[in-house]
Amino acid sequence: MTTKQLSIFLENKTGRLNDVAKILSESSINMKAFSIADNTDFGILRVLVSDTDKAYQILKQNGFAVKFTDVITLHISNTPGSLYSILDLLATANIYIEYMYAFSEGEQASVVIRPDNLEEAVKVLKQNNIQ
């Protein structure tokens, strides 16, 4: 259920995201999902990749500020209400979501969640048979 996500600090300037994409593609690393949080001066790229350790090493070698962050990834059905039931479980357990992003394909949807209390979140979800 938990996955290692890479968080990369990026200056807000044209082409910076291209650089990351290029470096990863040159090492044949695939990006499975990503999101960007930003303010006026900088952004943080959060990404799930096919080979996390390799991507981490390569980005570091190329001078990026990159960190591992543990996140929860869930595969749920791409139907109305399925996200709500999960969010409701976490809210009821008083777990705060720092950020999340999602993508869907066909009947499946995937959700990446960064809760403030990872252990507790995993526990709650498992108790409710959510994978």
Partner: peptide, 18 residues
């Protein structure tokens, strides 16, 4: 430049440092 170990995963943390 922020020292590597002080980059955080969230905007809030970075803004606080700023």
């Amino acid at each position: 430049e922020v020292k590597e170990q002080f980059y955080t995963d969230d905007i809030k943390g970075m803004v606080k440092l700023q």
